[in-house]
Amino acid sequence: MKVIGTFAVTAFDPTDVVPDPPIATALPVGVVTMRKEFAGELGGSSATLFTSAFDMTSGAGTYFAMESFEGVLGDRAGAFNFVHSATTSGTDRSHEFFLIVPNSGTGELAGITGTGGLSVDAEGGHHIWFDYELPEA
């Protein structure tokens, strides 16, 4: 099954978490907590741990995010984790990875497996899709 939706970041809060011991690199590494709200064929919210090595001036870098989603995919409610990462030169996305974490589903989403993806359109709108399978009821 596939669902497509949009999301808005509703909180983006940098933390004090940094690598220990500190190692100087050309791009600083940081950790942010995020909240998102989803709409479309999926609805709900997520809490995210977002780690990146990023140049804030150019927008270039790589991120890795672990999200805990709670809501509805199609007509099924529950929660699950998904992980995604990508690299950008500031205007593109490459080396993308997206996976629903196996064995993380609850409720009607128990047993969920699959992949998905994220994109940002020219107007800055954020889009997400899940291509997933659920066990037979």
Results as ranks from 00 to 15, higher is better:
residue 3 V to M: 06
residue 5 G to T: 03
residue 6 T to P: 01
residue 6 T to A: 05
residue 6 T to C: 01
residue 6 T to K: 12
residue 7 F to G: 04
residue 8 A to Y: 08
residue 8 A to N: 13
residue 9 V to C: 13
residue 9 V to A: 12
residue 11 A to R: 09
residue 14 P to F: 07
residue 15 T to C: 02
residue 16 D to G: 09
residue 17 V to D: 11
residue 17 V to G: 04
residue 18 V to I: 13
residue 20 D to V: 12
residue 24 A to I: 14
residue 27 L to Q: 04
residue 27 L to W: 01
residue 28 P to M: 02
residue 29 V to Q: 09
residue 30 G to C: 02
residue 31 V to H: 11
residue 33 T to G: 10
residue 35 R to Q: 15
residue 35 R to T: 15
residue 36 K to T: 01
residue 36 K to H: 02
residue 36 K to E: 01
residue 38 F to M: 08
residue 39 A to H: 11
residue 39 A to L: 10
residue 43 G to Y: 04
residue 43 G to S: 13
residue 44 G to F: 05
residue 48 T to V: 15
residue 48 T to N: 14
residue 49 L to Y: 06
residue 51 T to R: 14
residue 52 S to E: 10
residue 54 F to S: 09
residue 54 F to Q: 08
residue 55 D to A: 07
residue 56 M to P: 09
residue 56 M to E: 11
residue 60 A to W: 00
residue 60 A to L: 01
residue 61 G to R: 06
residue 62 T to G: 03
residue 63 Y to G: 00
residue 64 F to N: 15
residue 65 A to E: 13
residue 65 A to W: 06
residue 66 M to D: 14
residue 69 F to L: 01
residue 69 F to T: 07
residue 70 E to A: 14
residue 71 G to W: 01
residue 72 V to Q: 15
residue 72 V to G: 10
residue 77 A to E: 12
residue 77 A to K: 15
residue 78 G to D: 00
residue 80 F to Y: 09
residue 81 N to W: 09
residue 81 N to S: 12
residue 83 V to P: 06
residue 89 S to Q: 07
residue 92 D to C: 00
residue 92 D to E: 00
residue 93 R to K: 09
residue 93 R to C: 03
residue 96 E to P: 07
residue 96 E to K: 11
residue 97 F to E: 11
residue 97 F to Q: 13
residue 98 F to S: 01
residue 99 L to C: 08
residue 101 V to T: 09
residue 101 V to L: 08
residue 102 P to D: 05
residue 103 N to G: 07
residue 103 N to A: 13
residue 107 G to W: 08
residue 107 G to N: 05
residue 107 G to D: 07
residue 108 E to K: 11
residue 108 E to A: 14
residue 110 A to F: 06
residue 111 G to S: 12
residue 112 I to K: 05
residue 112 I to G: 04
residue 113 T to D: 02
residue 116 G to L: 00
residue 119 S to C: 01
residue 120 V to L: 04
residue 121 D to N: 00
residue 122 A to L: 04
residue 123 E to Q: 10
residue 125 G to C: 10
residue 125 G to I: 12
residue 125 G to P: 06
residue 126 H to L: 13
residue 127 H to C: 06
residue 127 H to Y: 07
residue 128 I to S: 04
residue 129 W to I: 03
residue 130 F to W: 08
residue 131 D to C: 06
residue 132 Y to N: 05
residue 133 E to Q: 13
residue 134 L to P: 04
residue 134 L to D: 03
residue 135 P to I: 09
